[in-house]
Design a protein around this nucleic acid. Sequence first.
DNA 1: GGCGACTCCGAACGAGTTTC
DNA 2: GAAACTCGTTCGGAGTCGCC
Length: 488
Amino acid sequence: MSASHPKLSYAWNAQELLQLVRAWGDVVSPPRDKKMLLPAERIALHARFSALAGASRRSLSSVSRQHHRLVTAYRLIVEYNARSEEDGGPNWFQLPAAQQHELRRVHGKKEGMTAISEELFEDLARICQSGGGETVATRSPSSEKPSRKAVEKRRRKVPAAMATVQESSGPLEDAEKGETTESPRFKWGQREWLLFVAAWGEAVDDFVDYGNDQREKVKLPNWLIRQRFIALGGSEETTVGSITAKKRCVIQSFHFVRECAAALEARDGSDWFQLAYNERFRLQRKLIGPKSSQRLGCEIDLQMFANIATIIDKEEMLLTVTGGKRKRSRKRAPSVSSESSLAASSPRSPSLEPEELSDLEETPPPPPASPPPPSVSVHGEEDASSQVDEKVIESLLEAQNARFEQLMHDLREERMEERKQNQAMLLEILHQRAPPEDSPQNASYMETLVGKQQEQLMDLFAQMQKERQQEREDYHVLLRQLSTRPRA
DNA sequence: GGCGACTCCGAACGAGTTTC
DNA sequence: GAAACTCGTTCGGAGTCGCC
């Protein structure tokens, strides 16, 4: 944002919205519920709004966007009311807030919608229906609006349980119970977290598999994780925003576990992952801090931990191997995701300067349990050289990983190809030996063939599982060695 | 190339939950 | 009641896309 438009990163208040609607009525030509404004109207709307609001507090793009969200919401309400009038159901403002919220969410997936109060809706209806031109409201049978008092009266009369709407299903139990919670909350359980990690892993794999073109985006998009999450059986209600937050949460928990495991190992050599949930939860206060109460971190088992580590590695590799980072201005405080997520341990903390953040990105979290060692790295030179060493090691590890993944990928492809060829050959020989007229014999032999192949594949799979288990154990040994090694 | 709409997603936020 | 954490929503910066 420019200096003349200082960043105003908080919700539009009711007064601002009313001022926007007023400006809208003043400068926008009918039909006023059109979604697209003419360029001149956009500018005029911003100017008029700025004049009414006293100062140019919102940018042109912000005003345009808010206008767009209001139109979308207004049209949804008008259409909804028209339908419910035909069906004899409750109108929009008689619905519980939770249900309104759900409908807004379902209908405004991409663009989003502003929650419109009844007062604001009436103002909007007034300006949209005046001045001629066909509007959504005039097209619909429900254009005549009852007075606010009447609506209020009716709303009080409507039993909450009659919330019976329609497109929305799912987390609306609250509404059906008559509660008017603003945003129905759904707490994730073990299943959701496991699904999420699996989906995240699949998304990274998918992305690695076809993301080697330099022109491709090199940052894993969160919508891809959401897509995989839903494909694996996760709730379709989960938004990309929610996935973003979940990812941040998992990464934060991963760092938490890493710290705990290392601190515990250093303390008495015991294994964090062998402890029960309650034990972990109790111990974290000694290992991390007296006020620490991470729950998700305590639920993460060794397997999940290893999975997350692999995924984070792969995702970081995407940034280093497949090309440059997506260009982004450094004006904004940088993100908390991935490598810098430790900063998220205090989510409301003020944003870091880019320099501070790049420091954070390069260095591992300071172990809270052990005080910093006596001035080994106080000197700039030593600091710099150790950082360079770390970078070299990091690059080597990443390169090794990348090479290994590539080899595995090629091997998998080759094996699949070979398997197909073998099968084709077997079938061909079979057909030659047993002609089609001899079908019973043919069928029984084929059954045997399928059975044998199943056996072979099961053996192979079991072998791969063993290898995977071995890899985990190796990793665990490495982790132990690392954490018992005295800090430099 | 310029412009506006669309889209993604990080940050901020508020409300709820848990633990002490 | 305080503090830390969880969770979903909203806003808006910035990248992308399509049109002229």
